[in-house]
Design a protein around this nucleic acid. Sequence first.
DNA 1: TTGAAAGCGCTAACAC
DNA 2: GTGTTAGCGCTTTCAA
Lengths: 339, 339
Amino acid sequence: MAATLHDVARIAGVSIKTVSNVIHDYPHIRPATRAKVEDAIAELGYTPNLTARNLRSGRTGAIALAVPDLALSYFGELAAEVIAEAEKAGVVVLIEQTGGDRRRELELLGSPRLKLTDGLIFSALGMGQEDVASLGVEYPLVLLGERVFDGPVDHVTMQNVEGARAATEFLLASGRRRIAVVGAHEHEVIGSAGLRLRGYREALEAAGIPYDDDIVAYTTLWHRAYGARAMRDLLDRGVEFDAVFGLNDTLALGAMRTMQEAGIHVPDDVSVVGWDDLDEAQYSIPSLTTVDPGSRWIARTAVQTLLKRIADPESGHAAQLHLADFRVVERESAPRTLT
Amino acid sequence: MAATLHDVARIAGVSIKTVSNVIHDYPHIRPATRAKVEDAIAELGYTPNLTARNLRSGRTGAIALAVPDLALSYFGELAAEVIAEAEKAGVVVLIEQTGGDRRRELELLGSPRLKLTDGLIFSALGMGQEDVASLGVEYPLVLLGERVFDGPVDHVTMQNVEGARAATEFLLASGRRRIAVVGAHEHEVIGSAGLRLRGYREALEAAGIPYDDDIVAYTTLWHRAYGARAMRDLLDRGVEFDAVFGLNDTLALGAMRTMQEAGIHVPDDVSVVGWDDLDEAQYSIPSLTTVDPGSRWIARTAVQTLLKRIADPESGHAAQLHLADFRVVERESAPRTLT
DNA sequence: TTGAAAGCGCTAACAC
DNA sequence: GTGTTAGCGCTTTCAA
């Protein structure tokens, strides 16, 4: 059985209050008393029972992070950054996976499991604007992603429309005209896919190029396999294109894979741009030109915002929207200048 | 303020014991009483305070998973599987990152932060056999990885020597003779690198091929960038080889990247085999022949073993070593038959 | 400078 | 069937 405050107090011959004072570096303790207590702590190998402390204080020192799936590189990298940032504040992170499923996401928001934490960073993927009311929870909550806007909570996200517009403009500036899209979602207006597609359309429009739904490939999930499959569809349909905008890096990489099998050369025949700037994008063959949407900043800001809300729940200032900076990272798959 | 048992009891006009009984599905409750209580619970939106429950029961319903870095695909995929398996048992997972640093790993083992959990799945990377005593902790612990063997704890790991031997034999059987290694660690005997290198040497020896340290490239970390750099070293040194055994997939992918830049064709000029069977290995260009070391089984087994120890801490049966099955997955980067 | 004691919200032994 | 109550280990107010 682990030692308790009482055990330490008994061994040291003092009361538990004194032990508690020592542990909390309360200043006015006689050095001799302090030494006795510290000896007793060492002798017993005492460590405080955090559960008891939490019950007393109402804090747990843990936050929850909910993501669709940690095996997806994007969320793995996000979680790594969240954990690192939380650790700086001495806070641990409990991770929940929702599979990007709306029902599981909504369930999670009301789950008693969250009682083990002081707040939640919630990367939504399945729920939508109609679920905005579900975000009105009693615990501190920071929302990530682009499924719900104008909710009653702090929201940290990326500039999807602007970034996608910049990526498309980049391709246009390099001389491409028939830019296929991989990863669109049917009828989606908001959501990552919808917003990025909007940016794409805005760029086309500004350049006076008509939007052509024939070169937009729809997928449900954003795995490599789906990018590969979407590209196969495009090729099977025999449509012509000279560039591909993958709505994220894994889709773009999957699509590149299929093109390579089909004997299409990237970037000589077709330029490819992705989105996320995963670590992997630097080392693919060819390396991937992509949009860095500021994910690290998003992770850090989400943690800081949540911790601020936890520290001062009554701060009462309205929910804020935090937008990350983005930039187009030029690599081999889409050179600025075609040769 | 969140509602408590007492609030519910007051509203329902019963005692807290009755409320508790309802919550725990205690069978002998008058239906009318049950209904009253359930109404009160619904009215107040009551959810039990898990911290209090934990304090009482001595359980937290959470386990910790310590990995070097979630941004590394291998650990992202491992964590995803651990969380999914834990969820089946209604257990949540708290993730710690150690950076693969020995000091941080040892610190973590004694950290009070772990008090928030019932046990730990610990993927060691920095500590070594000399630290075996540190594994003698008081809480349930399951060890992953190959840094420490014969410790006082359950250990779930892969067949490194045998798998590496099989991978090397696969290359030899396809006709390769000069098999370079990427990712070796200087002077390492155990550890993933040391063990896999041993398997490699055993296969060479069995085939009567002398070991040549000139075609073994050393790296410290197992990131893509290090695989790329190691390959550049090999090429700069002008050594000859007709195959590469990357000690993990990311190393192999980084090495492929460098070869492509150097105009070396995989697999026509050089065959490449990796290790881990990451999702990514299926979609690289060319797709990667690799060893599937049974990581999913390892994750599931680790969780099950830990939960068993937690449920029955006195079970007293000795620490066990669980070894996963492995297999060589043939893909494009190293075909069984060279053409 | 230190001690006594209440109480965080819950579970469970025991009483009625 | 349902109520009373002790106590999990800690923090903190109040006293001494």
